[in-house]
């Protein structure tokens, strides 16, 4: 999985590309966890096709850590299939998921 970082106002945006499977979740962990210092972090899922339970675990850990540190974590731009997947796993109630990430960050 490829991960690039960009800034949007006071948000750090991670642009994800590929599958968040076992290997992808390790890459995501390495890129995401150093950013969880209480600031605002957004994950752009526009190019994510599939997430496995390893990926969900990393996201859940990140959400827990961010909440504990008073920071914000937003996920957005998901394809309908990935969005469905979050709903099936019951994760849409756990994460803040924005259909349009840039608009959500601007708001």
């Amino acid at each position: 999985m490829n991960i690039t970082t960009s800034a949007h106002g006071d948000w750090t945006v991670l642009n994800l590309d590929g599958k968040i499977d076992n290997a992808g979740s390790e890459a995501l962990k390495s890129a995401l966890f150093p950013l969880l210092t209480g600031g605002n972090v957004a994950l752009d899922f526009a190019r994510i096709e599939y997430v496995t339970s390893s990926g969900f675990r990393v996201l859940l850990q990140a959400e827990k850590e961010q909440r504990a540190k008073g920071g914000r974590l937003v996920l957005g731009n998901m394809m309908p299939s990935v969005s469905n997947f979050f709903e099936i796993a019951g994760l849409h109630t756990v994460f803040k998921i924005a259909p349009d990430l840039r608009a959500a960050l601007d708001a």
Binding site: S53, F56, I88, A89, L91
Partner: peptide, 10 residues
């Protein structure tokens, strides 16, 4: 596959 992954996560 999504069902299996979701169940595993839960």
């Amino acid at each position: 596959d999504n069902l299996a992954e979701s169940l595993n996560t839960l």
